[in-house]
Simulated assay, not measured.
Amino acid sequence: MLLMLVVASCLTFVTRLVYFSTVNGGWSDVFPQPWLSLAMSQRERSLEKPCRPKTHLFFLKTHKTASSTVLNIMYRFGEARNLTLALPVAYQFGYPQLFDTRTVKSYNATNKQEYHIICNHMRFYKPQVEKLMPNDTFYFSILRSPVTWMESSFAYYKDTARAFSNVTSLEQFLEDPWSHYSPTSSGSHYARNCMWFDFGFDHNEGDTPAYVDSVIGKIANTFHLILIAEYFDQSMVLLQEALCWDLDDVLSFKLNPRGNGTVVPLSATTADQIRAWNSLDWKLYLHFNRTFWQKVDLYGRQRMSEKVVLLQEARQKMRDLCLERGRPVDPSQILDKTIIPFQYGRARIQGYNLNTNLTPATRERCLRMILPELHYKDLLDAKAHPPAGPREHPPW
């Protein structure tokens, strides 16, 4: 019995020592500060200090990474709590130029307004972001395997990226990419290392260990959490835990899915060529995929599995409640033509039909979950910046 008490006391001491060292900046290489909320359960955190939902949020919306679904989560969270969102003048913050506060609608540099949430497409530039966001802002983003990313990017940007314009297939492009690609051509970032580019770095820089380590270090020191698209549900659990939100706050339907007819299977050879061509993105993905699973281990694998089941069950209940036939449909089959997702490139972007027997309140909740990002941005824009006078009817 005495031995058991001694062991228990030692374990308690070690646990408190790790916690003390973490929150005071010690052992930063082993337990970086952003991991703290993921290393401790909500109950454990509540014993140390009250767990309050985070409302100062920066989400770097990378391209073709399931980021539109995350954007919808941010929009719904902010709208439900009447938070202030920084919205772009158009639909992106001056992309592909580096972010500048002048692209934020109604931002006044003299009367500097602090925002709760910023989450639309941008090319990240921290000094300008910090002009908008307070010091306690939680920074996060999402990555996707460059292999599936490039297959999607080719379908979506076939007519936008000049590198893709003269080839009939992704395989043809990858056989000799430099005969089609120019670093200075229009949309070149859509054809190579786009995630690296979105984080604000040169997507054509030489792939050297020193450069890669430097960039990854800068990203790791800025962003508290990097989600992984292939493990979306696990990502949502980590995000919910890190932000001290309820599980319902990260509930979502997949937005902007492509119809199966536009998804092209890739051979092992093509996949290897994609990794080589997008080597900066591949190394970025490998690093943060590894640290992602380290965070899952800190959270607890069994605990994660149980939470993912709860999330999936809750999503299925909402799917049954909200969605006709419970699945996305081709844009031609969407009954409400005002909420058809924006169609771009050669992809067929699917959307949803709502069940017709919903109460008004339930319908509004369901509608927010399927609302395409451009439509949702316009809705939030109209609420935040209502017209000064009565709207004029168009002459037609």
Score class of each variant (00 low, 15 high):
214 S>N: 10
155 A>P: 12
167 V>W: 07
102 R>I: 12
107 Y>K: 10
145 S>M: 07
114 E>R: 14
155 A>S: 15
189 H>L: 05
218 K>R: 06
95 Y>N: 00
190 Y>S: 03
152 S>Q: 08
215 V>E: 00
101 T>N: 12
206 G>D: 15
112 K>N: 08
147 V>D: 07
136 D>S: 06
119 C>M: 12
201 F>I: 05
190 Y>G: 02
178 W>P: 14
184 T>Y: 10
149 W>A: 03
212 V>I: 01
188 S>C: 05
150 M>D: 11
126 K>T: 01
216 I>L: 00
185 S>C: 11
102 R>N: 15
94 G>S: 00
131 K>Y: 03
138 F>R: 07
119 C>N: 06
190 Y>T: 05
95 Y>E: 07
179 S>D: 04
135 N>D: 15
209 P>M: 02
213 D>S: 14
120 N>D: 15
123 R>E: 08
214 S>H: 13
218 K>D: 05
146 P>R: 04
148 T>Y: 12
207 D>E: 13
187 G>N: 10
187 G>Q: 09
155 A>F: 10
141 S>F: 05
152 S>W: 08
200 G>D: 10
133 M>C: 08
98 L>N: 15
208 T>L: 01
196 W>E: 00
96 P>M: 01
174 L>H: 14
117 I>F: 01
170 L>P: 01
191 A>G: 03
130 E>I: 02
172 Q>D: 12
121 H>R: 12
161 A>N: 08
130 E>G: 10
214 S>R: 15
206 G>E: 15
177 P>N: 02
122 M>T: 03
187 G>C: 04
139 Y>Q: 10
208 T>H: 09
185 S>K: 08
195 M>P: 14
127 P>N: 06
207 D>S: 12
143 L>D: 07
155 A>G: 15
185 S>V: 04
146 P>S: 03
133 M>T: 12
110 T>Y: 15
155 A>I: 08
